[in-house]
Amino acid sequence: MSEDFPIESAGSEKAERDESRAFDSVAAERRHLMSLAFRMMGTLADAEDVVQETYVRWYRLDAEEREAIATPAAWLMRVASRISLDMLSSARARRETYVGQWLPEPVPFDLFADAATGPTSSSHIAADPLDRVSLDETVSMALLTVLESMTPAERVTFVLHDVFGVPFGEIAGVVGRSPGAVRQLATSARRHVREKRRAQVSPRQHGEAVRAFRDATVGGNIKELLRVLAPDVELRVDGGGFVNAAPRVIRGEDHVARWLMGVMRKQPALRFERRDTADGLGYMLTDGERRYGMATFDVSAERVTNVWLMLNPLKLTSWSLGQEWSG
């Protein structure tokens, strides 16, 4: 009998090593799941809820059920997608009672840069170049606000297929539709993107327009500010009920310019710190040692067409302080 103990011990140690490797493999998917869930939900807090619930469901499985899953990463992705689909409906209801305007959370363009790789090549996904989006663009305010206009099923389909390269057949099981119906969802989602997408400008053109906006705003030069704003420019401000903010969309160059001039008169100590965003050049607004807000922009034909100003402190946590005030 004594000779049996080393064999049992070795078997036990091997089982523990296998279990540890399995745990590490599943845990390593967390960043990938956050990348997926953020594009689904639009805020880091909601994305974190999705990921947490996904792992809860994994660890509720018994050992035999987990062993039967051939590809845990694919299982986790499917479950996270289903949870996102369910949460998107309740999120819409919550946003109806949100204080003021609700905006997606602005995040650094490289926050998920090495995590948003899909299971297949995305080069075949959209034949029309106008329908294609880059991974950086899918965390931009310009696209995230378009995703907000989609139905939950359209959004989940778009993110899974056009961003992560998941085949329609697999998406069908997530959204509870036939593959043909899922293709229609993808077509509808791309139509949303195409209709609301303005002509692309180069990073240089975007930067020049945004720097001119900053210079005119800081300098109190309303004439120069009017020159850089498009006639149909729109300004959206998300204060989340924590700070005073414009309760509705401000439209038109004159109204936007005067609102901005009013803010600068009330907050003369505001500093503009350069930040690289998925939309291009943006600015962190600081007031001494405090983050005041994050400004991101959409530019078309060398003029600013959209200004998104995030003042809700709960949606500024991914941005650091301390960069120099520069163009």
Results as ranks from 00 to 15, higher is better:
273 E>Q: 15
203 P>C: 09
187 T>Q: 11
273 E>D: 14
63 A>T: 12
153 A>L: 08
212 A>R: 09
232 D>K: 13
182 V>E: 10
192 H>P: 09
92 R>H: 05
12 S>E: 13
131 D>R: 05
307 V>R: 02
189 A>T: 04
160 L>G: 12
98 Y>S: 09
118 G>I: 00
139 V>H: 01
92 R>I: 00
180 G>W: 09
68 A>S: 15
79 V>E: 05
260 L>M: 09
226 L>R: 04
225 L>D: 10
250 I>P: 10
200 Q>H: 03
270 L>S: 10
35 S>K: 00
215 D>A: 12
226 L>H: 02
18 D>E: 12
131 D>S: 08
321 L>C: 05
30 R>W: 10
207 G>I: 01
58 W>R: 06
73 A>K: 15
213 F>D: 08
267 Q>G: 04
124 H>T: 06
305 T>Y: 06
82 R>G: 11
122 S>T: 15
31 R>Q: 11
276 D>I: 01
77 M>H: 15
128 D>N: 11
124 H>M: 03
209 A>C: 09
227 R>C: 12
175 V>M: 05
248 R>M: 11
242 F>K: 06
34 M>E: 04
65 E>L: 06
286 T>D: 03
227 R>A: 15
103 L>G: 10
199 A>Q: 04
9 S>I: 13
267 Q>I: 00
288 G>M: 00
255 H>L: 14
61 L>R: 02
295 A>T: 07
145 T>Q: 02
311 L>N: 05
104 P>A: 06
22 A>F: 07
250 I>A: 04
174 V>G: 11
312 N>V: 01
283 Y>R: 10
66 R>M: 14
312 N>L: 00
42 G>C: 00
98 Y>F: 15
179 P>D: 00
316 L>P: 03
227 R>T: 12
6 P>E: 02
283 Y>W: 03
238 D>L: 00
293 G>F: 07
178 S>L: 07
125 I>T: 13
108 P>W: 00
263 V>E: 15
50 V>C: 07
16 E>A: 13
178 S>H: 09
167 P>N: 02
290 R>D: 11
173 G>H: 00
160 L>W: 00
52 Q>S: 11
295 A>V: 03
59 Y>V: 13
30 R>Q: 08
188 S>C: 07
265 R>K: 15
10 A>P: 07
102 W>H: 11
30 R>G: 06
304 V>M: 09
105 E>P: 13
183 R>N: 14
23 F>W: 08
42 G>R: 01
51 V>C: 05
172 A>L: 04
324 E>T: 14
318 S>A: 15
31 R>E: 11
136 D>W: 02
227 R>I: 07
305 T>G: 14
239 G>K: 03
212 A>Y: 05
28 A>E: 10
52 Q>Y: 02
309 L>C: 09
326 S>L: 10
153 A>E: 12
214 R>C: 12
276 D>R: 09
99 V>H: 12
183 R>Y: 13
56 V>W: 07
274 R>M: 10
205 Q>C: 08
256 V>I: 06
75 W>E: 02
265 R>S: 14
23 F>S: 13
269 A>G: 14
31 R>C: 05
277 T>W: 05
164 F>P: 14
290 R>H: 10
294 M>R: 08
210 V>D: 03
308 W>G: 03
20 S>L: 06
263 V>G: 13
299 V>L: 04
275 R>Y: 06
109 F>L: 03
161 H>S: 05
307 V>D: 12
259 W>E: 09
183 R>S: 15
192 H>V: 02
